[in-house]
Design a protein around this nucleic acid. Structure first.
Lengths: 167, 167
DNA sequence: TTCTAAGTTCAGTATATATTGAACGTCTAG
DNA sequence: CTAGACGTTCAATATATACTGAACTTAGAA
């Protein structure tokens, strides 16, 4: 195995371990373990672009699961499917702007929380300010977080444009 | 019911609905639905401090579940158990600094991701820079996020000290 | 066209997790 | 001390979700 890749003295096993740990982390975040495994694996595998079949072989999961989870990761903005000239299969790779996708996902969650607090306030419309106070504080927090994270996202994008013009 | 609380024209049902929606949001975040229900409810209930028994009655969940999930929310830094003079039971309420707890939780997740990327890099120690590139980018992102969120947390704390000296 | 490989979908199954309900410990009041 | 309320723990159960494997669709090769 691995006859056509130069892995130096890297143990295939420890690379797999890295993927596996991302699986566990994803699970703690309420996402499928397999999605995490793919995400981790695509950061250390060789070659960097992998076909569905290669993922099946490397990670020991079913075709169906790879299909489902690559689609999930795509929809989260973390993966992209790229065409390789002369190849019939789809090749999956980490999106260059994947981290913006991660931040955007988090932003969505914050925005949902803010919207929900807002909706709660409308239910308490006729209540006293004291009664509203808890909800107002919550709304203010999520509004703060939403604004700040949007700025953070811009920061990151700026950073990428300056510094990492390598790729 | 509700003979001793003045709820004005607020429908008990719509307040419960608010709690229920937080339950669903929590679930999407990989947390128990009941924990979300409690968290939502404690922002709109009257009185603001509730006993375990009141939570059982209001939310229609078991004593055991309330016990488990209040402990969870406590450990996340969102709830506090306060003693009420003359009352035998524990009373639960939203911590005044709950939102700092939320941010701290998120920070922990980011730190874990950064640590994991770091560990991956040590596995690739002897590899070429090109091979390391994907992991380095990931590590850099999480390191960035970690630093920025720490600052964000400080911002929020400062904001609280200035503005919200009401409570 | 037919044959084969790739990828998707989905019903069935496995697995993990939350929730219940009952038994237990603990504390306070009387 | 005893009675009863409160809270916790845990085994059993319910429930949700991920995963597999097989059937199906599509597309290229011959």
């Amino acid at each position: 195995m691995n006859s056509n890749t130069n892995n130096g003295n890297l143990r295939h096993e420890s690379l797999l371990g890295y993927a596996e740990e991302w699986g566990l982390l994803f699970e703690r975040w309420g996402l499928p373990r397999t999605a995490g495994r793919i995400w981790g694996w695509l950061h250390v595998c060789e070659p960097p672009l992998q076909t569905a079949g290669q993922l099946v072989d490397a990670l020991g999961v079913s075709k169906g699961s790879v299909s489902t989870n690559t689609r999930l990761l795509e929809s989260l903005g973390l993966l992209e499917r790229v065409g390789v000239p002369g190849a019939r299969q789809s090749h999956y790779g980490v999106r260059p702007d994947a981290f913006e996708g991660i931040m955007r996902q988090r932003l969505v969650g914050v925005a949902q929380a803010r919207a929900l607090a807002e909706r709660g306030l409308s239910v308490l419309e006729s209540a006293s300010p004291e009664r509203k106070q808890r909800l107002t504080a919550k709304r203010d927090f999520y509004a703060f977080l939403e604004r700040e994270m949007e700025e953070l996202l811009r920061h990151w994008q700026g950073r990428r444009e300056e510094g990492t013009l390598v790729d």
